[in-house]
Design a protein around this nucleic acid. Sequence first.
RNA 1: UGGGGCGUCGACAAGCGGUAAGUCACAUGAUUUUGGUUCAUGCAUGCGGAGGUUCGAAUCCUCCCGCCCCAGCCA
Length: 564
Amino acid sequence: MNTSDSNLPSNFIRYIIDDDMKSQKFQGRVHTRFPPEPNGFLHIGHAKSICLNFGIAREYQGKCNLRFDDTNPAKEDEKYVQSIKEDVEWLGFDWGEAPFFASGYFTALYDCARQLISKGKAYVDDLSPDQIREYRGTLKEPGKESPFRNRSVEENLDLFQRMKTGEFEEGAKVLRAKIDMGSGNLNMRDPVLYRILKAHHHRTGDEWCIYPMYDFAHCLSDSIEGVTHSICTLEFEDHRPLYDWILNTLEVYHPQQIEFARLNLTYTVLSKRKLLQLVEDGHVDGWDDPRMPTLSGMRRRGFTSNSIRDFCERIGVAKSNSIIDLALLEHCLREELNKTALRVMAVLRPIKVILTNYPEGQTEELESENNPEDPDAGSRKLTFSRELYIERDDFMEEPPKKFFRLAPGKEVRLKHAYIIKCEEVIKDEQDNIVELRCTYDPDTKSGQVEKSRKVKATLHWVSASHAIDAEVRLYGNLFTSPNPGDEKECPELKDALNPDSLEILKDCKVEPGLADANGDQPFQFLRLGYFCLDPVALAQGKRIFNRTVTLKDEWAKLQKKAKG
RNA sequence: UGGGGCGUCGACAAGCGGUAAGUCACAUGAUUUUGGUUCAUGCAUGCGGAGGUUCGAAUCCUCCCGCCCCAGCCA
């Protein structure tokens, strides 16, 4: 892992760093940071940033800090700190001895603010929030200066000190930078640097009642930590002049801010606000609902951190707004799971099959490979018997042309077992198919020399008396719209919800070995998809399988096409 | 003329003046005891548009068009 030569696709950020290395701008150092606000759960979009920041540090043998941007006690909480640390760790990154906190710099930041005041570059403003907005002007018209803008340094120092001691109410005063109310960049129109917030902070408790704003805290935190490249998303591009202004005015070490486009994914939303809405409105079961694009949700769903890292590498890093096809994420997932998942047989919607020519009471043990992609995965014994279950979808009474599976008079192979032929369809009074009577061909046992006829399909099955019961949950996209995050396409998020994003199947039959499964092993339910044991249910002693992702399905594609 | 960005295949994305990488998706065929995997083949005479510079332009210049972000005491 000591590479700077990697065969990863390059990107504009790497070029900037390469140039900086050449020019010795930062004495050959590379130091990045991942700066989440602990006010929510991390999602796949954060993973892009994590992989970028930690990945670059690793590649250039530099460092990457995990820094919590905890400057707004009203919204932040220790529990988020915990989950963020878990997620970063799970993704496979190491932030060194300890994480950093912007709140750890509150004293230093306060001193910086005083210096700014002393330089005549900041002032205490008594304007109300509404007045500040009014005075700011609009996009096209310049703002006007606050009547408090020209207070003396002494008065400002005194007032700021009294803000700190709690003398004033929330909203009564703020500290503002004195820049340019006529700037075309709204961020430069005397931005607020400090506000009064009489809130309990999860780390500093009640020590402070003034808190720095993002723009003030972030650049200085970067500076204090010796960050070289401060990588953030595009919406902060407008803030860069302010980032630079603060650092220049204070004449302190000056990292370089670089902006890239945040991740968007088809059929999902990645804004904290919208994700929160899904949770609060009860459309999902919580932040770790397996349908959520949160790292905790994806982990529970069965995503591997490998596949997420692979995905983040493949999508690249650029400055154009884009939306990545979910299919790419799924591809990365399948690619890994194909190599690692143990193949097992599970029948989700069972229909009984009786082998009329198989002796009652007889069973036999069939050798079954665990993973054709991995010989080291070995094999297991499966019990075959007279009464089996197969998948309801694998039988059709009146099969269309390209249906290769079981139908009256048709033959299929049972995986690892024999070729069977459907002789009779048994129905109840309501005309529902309840059972299939089939015969098996003893000469076609799996593994025998290839003398038997070819058959067009191979089905998965379980032995009726040996299989165990299981609940299986199938997940689909949360949204039917490819771009639910787009306010124009989807003004009402809930209108884009997919009513079929969760299907719970309670009467599934799975092979008996699955009784011993633990939560760490991914499975491929043969011909169906990749599954994992739901860790939340498992902790409660229940066995529920989550479908991580389907297998690619040529037949499903054909059917879809046929329907139009 | 408010400021800041961005426009290369259906989706991403390399390319940085020498004649359009790669990935996903899609299509076709082969192999297959998973309609999985794997393999092979195809998929931009074209780089938002129009001019210009040049022997040569996606790359440089000019103008135009389109899209995104900004008016929190959020980050």
